[in-house]
């Protein structure tokens, strides 16, 4: 642990170097970054909220409380509530399998996990139409048994799962790879069972990465447009998620209502970011605490 402390020392030396850059360079860089952020992030965000309230607070709340909007919010939350836990389970198992074991076809599995990042969401949606549509592979069978997948809630959930598939696994794999298997091996030689090893050794060490993955996964699940649009059928009050609802309102010239719904989504994103920074802050604090404790022990 002495290494960690001296590391810290070295880093602070670097920081002093950076600070000693000429005044103009320093502030020039900061200004460029700030102007860029303002232009591309802050101003559009403000515009969303301004437009949302452009017809007054009453219109804002009326358009959020409107039954179709409410149904869209509920469907969005439902899709996320199913997709995120499933992808957490999948992500942990996949990351575990890839980093703690050696097996044939590992690279293929890693590539497959990345697939949803690589294909366009529209293609993702069409895959399900080809599979479950009336004229698709499973369509006739589903029709006979009166099971509806696409143009209904299951299709939307499936499409959401597909596009959010890699987030947790992608977050965990590098982390677990870095950590290696030595702690788990130690636990096993000390007589812990597989589950015990997972709960008491692996999970605590990956919890920050996991939380971060869950947050990203959730943000995408709520915001997904393309794939969901293809399988939705756009039935108002039934198969419209919040992003689809926004598009509909915009196309109906209800700009204030559209931006009110958009501000809900933007709000969700802001909350997500706030939670993320809070977690990061906690994470850093935890680490420092651990480092201090270790230093004291020495």
């Amino acid at each position: 642990m002495a290494g960690a402390v001296s590391n810290l020392g070295r880093r602070s030396a670097n920081i002093t170097d950076a600070v000693s850059e000429p005044f103009l360079v320093r502030w020039g860089l900061i200004a460029v970054a700030l102007i860029f952020l303002a232009l591309f992030l802050v101003i559009p965000l403000i515009a969303v909220f301004k437009e949302a309230f452009s017809k007054g607070v009453e219109v804002y709340f009326a358009s959020i409380r409107e039954p179709d909007a409410w149904a869209a919010v509920k469907l969005t939350l439902l899709a996320a509530a199913i997709a995120v836990p499933l992808n957490v389970i999948f992500g942990i198992s996949a990351a575990w399998a890839i980093t703690k074991f050696r097996f044939r076809g590992k690279q293929v599995l890693i590539t497959l996990i990345d697939l949803p990042f690589a294909v366009s969401p529209v293609v993702a949606g069409l895959i399900y139409v080809l599979l479950f549509g009336t004229k698709g592979w499973l369509g006739p069978w589903l029709g006979e048994h009166d099971i509806k997948i696409i143009f209904a809630v299951p299709g939307i959930v499936l499409a959401t799962i597909f596009v959010t598939f890699p987030f947790v696994a992608r977050e965990l794999i590098p982390l677990m790879e870095e950590q290696g298997t030595s702690y788990e091996e130690a636990a096993l030689t000390l007589g812990a069972s597989g589950w015990q090893t997972f709960w008491k050794v692996t999970l605590p060490s990956i919890k920050w990465g996991l939380l971060y993955g869950i947050i990203l996964c959730n943000a995408r699940a709520m915001g997904e447009f393309g794939a969901v649009s293809v399988v939705s059928g756009h039935i108002r009050g039934q198969t419209n998620t919040l992003p689809l609802h926004i598009e509909i309102l915009y196309n109906e010239y209800q700009f204030a209502a559209a931006f009110a719904a958009a501000s809900l989504l933007a709000g969700l994103a802001l909350v997500t970011l706030a939670v993320k920074s809070f977690l990061e802050w906690q994470h850093v604090r935890d680490r420092e605490k651990a480092a201090r404790a270790a230093a004291q022990q020495e």
């Binding site: 139409v129 009336t134 369509g139 029709g143 143009f151 756009h234 509909i248």
Partner: peptide, 15 residues
């Protein structure tokens, strides 16, 4: 449900 006419027909065909 509303959308481009051809696209909507396609959706009905698909189920």
């Amino acid at each position: 449900s509303h959308g481009g006419s051809g696209k909507q027909a396609r959706s009905v065909i698909d189920g």
